[in-house]
Design a protein around this nucleic acid. Structure first.
Length: 784
DNA sequence: GGAAGCTACATTTTT
DNA sequence: TGTAGCTTCC
């Protein structure tokens, strides 16, 4: 076992095994190296057997990496190690002990939207108007109760909330319905296992003696229920938790930063280790990150340092609108690629909210820069995929009312509102699941057509259910497609959207066959489990030659050579929903996480005026976090935009910097240059935007932010973009010119015949040599 | 029963 | 901007 590659603290942390251990691991301090080396050491030197070790992570990606690195380190058989996410390991144990649970062993996992539907059904059943009371607040109540390990009967749940009584009532009934539907939500996976351990002595003894060493990664993001679970599992054995209180960013999901402070109290004689040397970032980036995070009170005392070079200054750019911001980013990306031969896989763009990715995508596409967006609109949340997954869930578990309800008339088979109402009434009266209600109603159904439809559905469910243990996930999905004629149903729509839906179905089949190829349990049930617990970040495996775009939350644990952090505006980041002190501190940590992802280069941008949804453009001052970054670390000529917090108001005397061509974009010959110059010149005609913003002073929107009332002018700016975008960004505005040659991934080259509307979703009529004339949504076309 | 068309509504981060 | 849910019409 070679420990030479470790620094002193790292080595001590690896070797220590004399009681509870808490490792503070700053960003880029070699945390994963310590954990994996420790695991390898335990097996190779300390004689632990692989299955006596459990390591808990938050993402499958982290778990996979850990497994691979341990294997590489010691060449040991790691298959039998319990390395996985909290949720997947809990699920595995719940399935194993399902006989001890009120749930059937074939229970399915409800995602957020399934859960919301169940909440709505419960509320309706209890005569709560879902218009007057937001089901989501009830859903939130249930989830946070579970984060705190509280059941509906728990006295601790009582508080002064006016709705508290109703919420408890819904929670209780919801739980009953979940049990009889054979469904667990995310919270249940942890909470129900904890309850089982607490209440069932046999299970408790077995689990407490099963593992000799428990390691927990990202400990700062555990919530109370996870903490309690850890405490149970580690009751008689060694525990090592690794985390960084400065990177705790999941408070809203119940994560309790206190866990990391409380650990030493609950586990007496804890040895504390601090990994403070950073191997990732330049001195400049670290200085900036430290300057931001140090403003948070109540952190564990530590300071990240590095022996790395000072590096480049942080590039800060304040642009006119979010479009200009996106164009700036795209130009800089292009420059990194062309001038410095930077691999695109080393470039990432981070934003606070998913909605910000859209403009950016347009800008990147305009410059033909390939990109991937992590998260956002998820594949498995698309209607057609959810439909098919719903069929699989019902096949595994016909009692799953939420999913049966989803597909009972998809494709339409003549079971409409009237019939459904009758079924629901029957259910309420007899307290049975929907499937049983169907079975019971068929003989007494008077309308022949409906009767046939119902017995067809019943036969379909029976057939699927009878096959789910026989066929693998791929064959099952094919069976569903065959019996429901789902693809034919999609094609019947005959719209452009239908086309991409059919492609998504094929994509699902691909996912199935890949799953069947590699999974140890290739059943449909196994597939459903994996999908339920798979996150978007997990998909990000091999580095692709593409720019990666994601939220800051998703970026945690990753690193890139160059990072663009966009939307650094007060109100957006920190987000206006994060006003209270704790939330604001978390925003600050989020900023720290974002900065410390970058190895060499960090770009920070914001826009003076931003359009959200349909609302008016809103003027946002720069993020207050920027004030905390020492100016000498910044490379910018936007200082004039960074007055101190108190006097941060836009003044009419502000120079016309908005018309400025990005300083180092003035090399002749590139697209970016021509474009920005044109835009800049045009803006000169329009006049300084300072005036426009003055006009808006005093008016605020519902979030207390300044509204830019000079919409006409902003509008001008937007149309300038469009007029001068030229060939490079034609499709970002969706304004394809008639006669232009375009490219479609499926139909190949074509010529634009007609265009209606503007924007990525406008319809463009294109003549393809081999596929005739077709209407295509603009975003699927590339200019040539 | 079901398609189409309308309105209202909500939008932070996600295992 | 997208969609969920409602109404209207066939």
């Amino acid at each position: 076992m070679n420990l030479d590659a470790l620094n002193d603290v790292q080595r001590e942390a690896v070797l220590y095994d004399n009681g509870p251990q808490l490792v503070f691991a700053g960003a880029g301090s070699g945390k994963t190296r310590v954990i994996t080396t420790k695991i390898a050491y335990l097996v190779a030197q300390k004689g632990l057997r692989p299955w006596e070790i459990m390591a808990l992570t938050f993402t499958n990606k982290a778990a996979r990496e850990m497994r691979e690195r341990v294997e590489k380190l010691c060449g040991l058989e790691v298959e039998s190690m319990w390395i996985g996410t909290f949720h997947s390991i809990c699920l595995r144990l719940l399935r194993r002990y399902s006989a001890e649970l009120p749930w059937p062993s074939s229970f399915v996992i409800y995602d957020d939207s399934d859960q919301e539907k169940m909440v709505v059904q419960t509320m309706r059943e209890l005569d709560l108007d879902t218009k007057r009371f937001n089901p989501r607040s009830f859903q939130h109540f249930i989830n946070s109760a579970k984060h705190f390990a509280r059941s509906a009967e728990d006295r601790e749940l009582v508080n002064d909330e006016p709705l508290n009584g109703k919420m408890r009532q819904v929670y209780r009934r919801y739980t009953e319905k979940m049990v009889s539907a054979g469904a667990m939500d995310f919270g249940d996976l942890i909470f129900q296992l904890l309850r089982l351990i607490e209440q069932n002595e046999g299970v408790r003894r077995e689990l407490q003696s099963r593992w000799r060493y428990l390691l927990v990664d990202e400990f700062q993001d555990t919530n109370v229920v996870q903490y309690l679970l850890i405490r149970q599992l580690a009751a008689h054995h060694q525990i090592c938790v690794v985390g960084d209180d400065d990177q705790s960013i999941y408070r809203w999901r119940g994560a309790s930063i206190e866990n990391i402070y409380r650990f030493e109290v609950d586990f007496p004689n804890t040895a504390v280790f601090k990994l403070e040397q950073n191997y990732r970032s330049t001195q400049t980036i670290l200085d900036a990150a430290n300057a931001v995070i140090v403003k948070n009170p109540q952190r564990a005392d530590k300071r990240l340092w590095t022996e790395n070079q000072r590096g480049q200054k942080i590039r800060y750019e304040r642009t006119l609108t979010e479009r200009h911001e996106a164009d700036f980013v795209a130009s800089e990306v292009l420059k990194l690629k062309r001038t410095f031969d930077y691999p695109l896989s080393e470039i990432a763009i981070f934003y606070r909210t998913n909605a910000q990715s859209r403009v950016l995508e347009d800008a990147l596409r305009a410059k033909n820069l390939p990109y991937v967006v992590v998260g956002g609109f998820k594949f498995y949340e698309r209607a057609e995929i959810k439909d098919l997954m719903a069929y699989l869930k019902v096949a595994v578990n016909p009692r799953d009312d939420v999913n049966l309800l989803r597909v009972i008339n998809t494709p339409p088979r003549g079971i409409g509102k009237t019939t459904l109402d009758r079924l629901t009434t029957y259910q309420a009266a007899n307290d049975v699941c929907l499937y049983d209600a169907i079975v019971a109603t068929i003989p007494v159904e008077s309308r022949r057509k409906t009767q046939k439809a119902l017995s067809d559905v019943r036969r379909l469910i029976d057939e699927l259910h009878s096959q789910y243990t026989e066929l693998n996930a791929l064959r099952m999905t094919e069976l569903v497609l065959d019996r429901t004629e789902y693809v034919e149903y999609l094609k019947r729509e005959d719209t452009i959207e239908a086309e991409s839906r059919v492609e998504n179905v094929h994509e699902l089949l691909n996912a199935c066959s890949e799953f069947v190829r590699v999974a140890s349990d290739p059943s449909a049930a196994g597939f459903l489990d994996q999908i339920a617990l798979e996150s978007d970040i997990d998909q990000l495996d091999e580095p692709l030659e593409m720019v990666t775009m994601m939220t800051i939350h998703s970026s945690k644990g990753l690193e890139f050579g160059a990072v663009f952090l966009i939307g650094m505006e007060d109100g957006l980041f920190p987000h206006f929903n994060s006003k209270e002190r704790e939330a604001l501190e978390e925003e600050r940590r989020l900023c720290y996480v974002a900065f410390t992802r970058a190895r060499e280069r960090l770009f920070i941008t914001n826009a003076r005026s931003r359009r959200r949804f349909n609302g008016p453009p809103v003027v946002n001052p720069p993020s207050p976090f920027l004030d905390d970054v020492p100016r000498e670390l910044l490379d910018t000529d936007a200082f004039m935009n960074m007055p101190s917090q108190r006097q941060r108001q836009f003044s009419s005397s502000m120079p016309n910097h908005v018309a400025r061509v990005p300083r180092d974009a003035l090399r002749p010959g590139s697209h970016a240059d021509d474009e920005s110059q044109l835009v800049a010149e045009e803006r000169g005609d329009v006049g300084p935007l300072g005036r426009a913003i003055d006009g808006g002073r005093g008016e605020t929107d519902r979030f207390g932010r300044e509204i830019d009332r000079s919409e006409a002018q902003i509008h001008d700016e937007h149309s300038i973009d469009r007029r001068f975008a030229g060939a490079t960004s034609a499709e970002s505005a969706g304004s394809f010119e008639i006669g232009a040659t375009v490219y479609h991934t499926k139909f190949g080259k074509g010529v634009v015949q007609h265009a209606s509307g503007v924007g990525p979703f406008s319809r463009i009529t294109v003549r393809f040599p081999n596929h005739g004339v077709r209407k295509i949504v603009a975003k699927f076309l590339q200019p040539m």
